[in-house]
């Protein structure tokens, strides 16, 4: 489990985003709809990937992305896995429109299919990452067995990483006043919500190489922190999406 292979044109990183577009994503956070905050944070993460993929004046496809939105169905918003260069050409990401339910098991099952198709060709690449953003309890089957299967898949660099961004005001005992000084959630952190506990079981430990990248951006997550972000403010949601793009690059 090294998680040190650098994303390059020859060995691009694969990131699969799973975005919950259930009706509750219409609720407000800091005066804005949750879905709009997520859209902006995702767009910023894409911009960060472009930033980290330029060499000279060119954009080298160091990242490959799939974007799945889910309610009771799964919507493949990019029409398959796309290179960061192709996404930059699109100008902006497809709109995220809230629907009704929240069946995350279907979304993870779709991600598993993508991984099964992609992994044989990417054994020299960085370990793939699934970034799952949700704001509540899943309305479908329990996704955990699928996630555990996914977490046991991998490449030489390490097993597939699963990150969860949980938009909730109630998952922690105390609010996070200074996101940049926050140490993160580990296995021993007291969580108040059942959904949070479930997501913790479905979150990978933050690899040291990712932690160092985030430290360079002045985020002080502690060793052993999990890839689980309680997105109770815009900045934490943003950190979550930045974390997804923290694959080492040269």
């Amino acid at each position: 489990m090294k998680y040190t292979v650098q994303a390059s044109q020859r060995t691009p990183a694969l990131i699969i985003y799973l975005i919950d577009i259930s009706a509750s994503m219409n609720l407000l956070m800091e005066g804005r709809r949750r879905i709009d905050i997520v859209y902006d944070a995702l767009s910023l993460a894409v911009r960060q990937m472009v930033f980290r993929s330029t060499k000279g004046n060119r954009l080298t496809p160091r990242y490959r992305i799939a974007l799945l939105a889910y309610s009771d169905e799964v919507y493949d918003l990019l029409g398959g896995v796309k290179g960061i260069d192709e996404i930059a050409l699109m100008g902006k990401l497809p709109d995220l429109t809230p629907k009704r339910f929240s069946d995350s098991a279907k979304a993870f099952a779709q991600a598993e299919k993508i991984l099964k198709a992609e992994l044989p060709e990417m054994q020299d690449c960085p370990a793939p990452l699934i970034c799952h953003m949700t704001d509540g309890v899943t309305t479908g089957e329990d996704p955990e067995p699928i996630v555990k299967r996914i977490m046991s898949m991998g490449v030489e660099d390490g097993n597939v990483l699963v990150e969860n961004i949980f938009i909730s005001d109630h998952v922690l005992d105390e609010p996070i006043h200074e996101p940049r000084r926050w140490k993160g959630i580990d296995r021993g952190t007291v969580l108040k919500e059942g959904a949070g506990l479930k997501l913790r079981e479905m979150s990978s430990v933050l690899p040291e190489s990712y932690r160092e990248m985030l430290a360079e951006a002045d985020y002080q997550l502690a060793p052993g922190a999990l890839m689980l972000l309680p997105g109770n403010c815009t900045e934490l949601v943003s950190i979550g999406f930045q974390m997804s793009a923290a694959t080492p690059v040269r």
Partner: peptide, 17 residues
């Protein structure tokens, strides 16, 4: 010079850099 044919997002990133 930043080439005129680069996508807008790339141009913005290059300007920021």
């Amino acid at each position: 010079e930043i080439p005129s044919d680069v996508p807008l997002l790339l141009r913005e990133v290059l300007e920021e850099k």
